[in-house]
Design a protein around this nucleic acid. Structure first.
Length: 843
DNA sequence: TATTGGGCAA
DNA sequence: ATTTTTGCCCAATA
């Protein structure tokens, strides 16, 4: 890896040493001693660690390690920050403690032509997007920093440990980064940033984990680095001594690279051109320089590579330990020189062309002619699957694809067959239903995370399959929806199946817990993240208008809301009649425009009530497989079915047909991921190329309830992606909606009572029996309602006998509704059956 | 073959 | 300022 070696030479100046010495005397309070000292040892080559401390550490989960690691390496830590001499003057006093005052950083004379500011204590970078060099700066920042917020004008990025790790992993050196940064910054590069970059690039990417002949090796061009690892009291003993190599390291030479071709690129001309092309039309002086290093490897192909072997079970331990030592292991797969594993007959179909941003993300992965492990973040509908397939077609070795549900397993297989020329016998599915292997000696297996991680008693076939999966080497592991992996159970996948490279795909690298950073060492750095706004401007995904509709709660609802327990609260703000009206109005409006509408409600009771009242089809977890298909097909093809109600089942486990409008009436607390995922459902809209076409995303919120808070939180991710939420407090001509529901006070009171009654009974025989399809539903009365402890007395006080009569009436109305739905539905089904028949016989 | 319960995530 | 229930998946059961 010549570029990296050069980096080491250039990036080890005296000042960083001074920085470390000063840090030694002031370890952060939350910083474990062992971590701190091990990090320091980089300077003076000694590993005087407290052994018991280290033992304890080993027992801790990887997660804890990662968090500590991040703390120690944080830019805001003292050892980086000591180095700014802050000056104070007459203005400083206006800032609190002078803390956020950075005007001591002098502007360069030509600062107006430079688009970037950098904040020296957090590594925040601000980009003036309108600058003529805005595009160039964006490309640079995407490589070295994490996007934080990208609204219209000023974009915010953050340079972090992980982002620099990613930069190094695509072959950049400290010098590359500093030169480009300096060129784009309005100020000089602050000293803290300079040492931060230098120290990181020096440490990162030097040690690699490679799989050779089903054995794992730790590899580096830097012999001293390996010696240091072998001296470590955790890694050292784990080394496998193969016969003949004695105490010396295995030495091989890095093979020469030829021009790698990523299939599907416009002229399939390989990485170098792909990179130049990715630079776009603008003159990209810096960028050209930047990417030139990616291919520098060709220069000296006699590079000696040192390695030692470690056993399979130690991989996790070693990865963890190297992380502690501040030298995270990078995984690279030199697939073109792998003749141990059989090649897979696979290529993209000849006329397939991948989009520029897909190409860009793949060129990050294959930047140096090898397959790097990492994560690619693309919004839903932007073609994540095709990126994965193209990666598989580039590597041409055995592939294992992991998905979240068996639905997407089937889809992935179909996509593979659609985009590539893979022999259908070579791509097999491993789920509860199907446990076939591929016929040849290599191929593709598509399966789910839970299939692979399940540790309980398994059927004989599954066991055999698992042994098969575990027993061989895979060229590529594709991890769909990779944000689920950090969960305790799912991370077991990483160690149980041996793969040379891993590619994680996701739309939202977000979780409400802090485990997302674990992906950086479980899989690899984030290689690429698309800018949603940019993609929608280019017409790859739909343009979306987002709105939050504020629905006032009628007083009687609000009173009840204040008294209710948390579940009832959720039900009540979903059942808010104003919300219902707003929903009805929006459905009306958009159906008239010819839109396809999806309504999401996490709250099952309201989901069913809304759907029944409005006579729309709905799907939730209890809906049987066949019905789901029928409803979905109707929604897709039947011009009379334009609105579909969905529970959160629609978030992950359904392959939804495309819709153009999305209405949210109830959602899962403040989950930003859910919000983003749901928005993603309308990004595919095909009509996006029509002039002025917009998709719509409405979030209905009951005023003055918890929903307001959650809603704001949920939106933050989308706002950071550049979406602007309009707040609507009044819908124009709402009252002109035909058959507007709950228009009278009496109806509203009824609704409230019915809601209370139905939910009190524990849902025993509530709407479940009015299921559109009359099918018995699992867990109908089950765990729900345990906590509801309302007495009949409370209800009596509220209602009065008169209103009880209306409840009866309403039940009758529901039944009529159901009959209608059934009658209607029968015609749909016939139609669908005919259609199916046509498709079948036609082909 | 359909249903049920356990485990897990969000 | 925080949560609960829901849904998925598998394997066992009748």
């Amino acid at each position: 890896m010549p570029p990296k070696r050069k980096a080491a030479a250039q990036a080890a100046p005296a000042p960083s040493k001074a920085g470390r010495t000063s840090a030694l005397s002031t370890p952060g309070p939350a910083t474990p001693r062992s971590l701190d000292s091990s990090m320091m040892s980089e300077a003076d080559d000694d590993f005087d660690e407290d052994v018991s401390e280290a033992q304890k550490q080993r027992e801790d989960g990887l997660g804890v390690e990662a968090e500590q690691f991040v703390q120690v390496f944080d830019l805001s830590s003292k050892r980086f920050q000591g180095k700014n001499e802050k000056r104070t003057d007459s203005v400083t006093s206006f800032f609190k403690n002078g803390e956020r005052d950075f005007h001591y950083l002098p502007l360069k004379p030509d600062h107006q032509r430079r688009p970037l500011y950098i904040e020296p204590t957090q590594g925040l970078i601000f980009l003036e997007r309108w600058s003529p060099r805005g595009k160039q700066a964006t490309d640079f920042l995407v490589t070295i920093a994490e996007p934080v917020s990208r609204p219209k004008y000023i974009h915010e990025y953050k340079m972090t440990a992980h982002s620099l790790y990613a930069a190094v992993s695509v072959g950049l050196t400290a010098k590359d980064i500093l030169t480009s940064l300096d060129g784009l910054l309005k100020t000089e590069v602050p000293q803290s940033i300079r040492s931060f970059i230098e120290e990181y690039t020096m440490r990162f990417g030097k040690v690699k984990l490679v799989l050779k002949g089903n054995k794992f090796y730790i590899e580096s061009v830097d012999e001293k680095m390996l010696a240091r690892l072998l001296n470590d009291e955790i890694i050292g003993p784990l080394r496998v001594h193969t016969s003949g190599d004695g105490e010396g390291l295995t030495v091989t030479t890095a093979p020469k690279m030829g021009g790698l071709v990523i299939p599907g690129t416009q002229n399939a001309a390989g990485v170098h051109q792909a990179n130049l092309k990715a630079g776009g039309a603008e003159p990209a002086a810096n960028e050209g320089e930047l990417y030139a290093t990616l291919n520098e490897e060709d220069d000296d192909d006699k590079e000696a590579v040192h390695a030692f072997e470690i056993p399979d079970h130690a991989v996790e331990t070693v990865q963890k330990r190297c992380l502690e030592l501040g030298m995270p292991i990078l995984e690279e797969y030199d697939f073109r020189n792998d003749d141990q594993n059989a090649n897979l007959e696979i290529d993209l179909r000849p006329n397939t062309q991948i989009r520029p941003y897909q190409e860009q993300s793949l060129s990050k992965m294959f930047g140096n002619g090898r397959a790097k492990s990492g994560i690619i973040v693309l919004p839903c509908g932007a073609g994540k699957t095709l990126v994965g397939i193209t990666a598989a077609c580039t590597i041409k070795k055995g592939v294992i694809v992991l998905c979240t549900s068996s639905m997407s397993v089937v889809q992935w297989r179909q996509e593979f067959l659609k985009w590539s020329n893979i022999n259908p016998d070579d791509i097999a599915i491993f789920t509860a239903e199907s446990k076939n292997k591929f016929s040849g000696n290599t191929g593709i297996i598509v399966t789910t995370y839970s299939m692979v991680t399940n540790s309980r008693e398994r059927s004989h076939d599954s066991k055999k399959m698992m042994d098969f999966l575990r027993g061989r080497e895979w060229g590529l592991m594709l991890l769909d929806e990779v944000h689920v992996v950090p969960a305790e159970v799912f991370r077991r996948v990483i160690s149980s199946i041996k793969s040379h490279s891993k590619l994680g795909l996701t739309a939202t690298l977000l979780r409400e817990d802090d485990k997302i950073s674990h992906l950086n060492f479980l899989i690899g750095p984030k290689l690429f993240e698309a800018n949603w706004m940019e993609l929608s401007q280019q017409g790859h995904i739909a343009k979306v208008q987002c709105a939050e509709v504020w629905c006032p709660m009628p007083t009687e609802f609000y009173d009840e809301y204040l008294r209710a327990n948390s579940h009832m609260k959720r039900t009540l703000y979903a059942m808010n009649p104003s919300k219902f009206q707003a929903c009805q109005y929006l459905i009306n409006y958009h159906e008239a425009r010819g839109d396809k509408i999806i309504v999401f409600s996490d709250e099952l009771y309201s989901l069913k009530q809304y759907a029944l009242k409005l006579n729309k089809v709905y799907i939730y977890g209890g809906t049987g497989q066949a019905e789901r298909m029928q409803v979905l097909q109707n929604f897709q093809h039947n011009p009379n079915v334009n609105t579909l109600f969905l529970s959160k089942i629609g978030d992950t486990s359904l392959d939804l047909p495309e819709a153009t409008v999305l209405i949210q009436i109830s959602s899962h607390f403040g989950s930003r991921r859910q919000e983003a995922q749901r928005l993603g459902r309308i990004l595919r809209a095909k009509r996006r190329n029509d002039e002025g076409f917009n998709a719509f995303f409405y979030s209905l919120v009951s005023k003055d309830t918890q929903e307001m808070y959650y809603s704001a939180k949920r939106q933050t991710f989308l706002v950071d992606q550049g979406y602007a939420f309009k707040v609507i407090t009044q819908l124009a001509n709402l009252d002109k909606t035909p058959d507007l529901a709950f228009a009278t006070a009496k109806e509203r009171r009824e609704l409230l009572q019915r809601t209370l009654v139905d939910n009190e009974k524990g849902g025993e025989e509530d709407v479940e029996n009015d299921d559109l399809f009359g099918k018995p539903v699992r867990r109908a009365g089950g765990r729900r309602g345990g906590g509801v402890r309302r007495t009949a007395g409370t209800l009596g006080e509220l209602s009065g006998g008169q209103d009880m009569a209306y409840i009866e009436q309403n039940k009758g109305a529901n039944k009529t509704l159901k009959k209608q739905a059934k009658a209607q539905q029968n015609t749909f089904f016939k139609k669908i059956a005919r259609e199916k028949e046509r498709v079948r016989t036609g082909k």
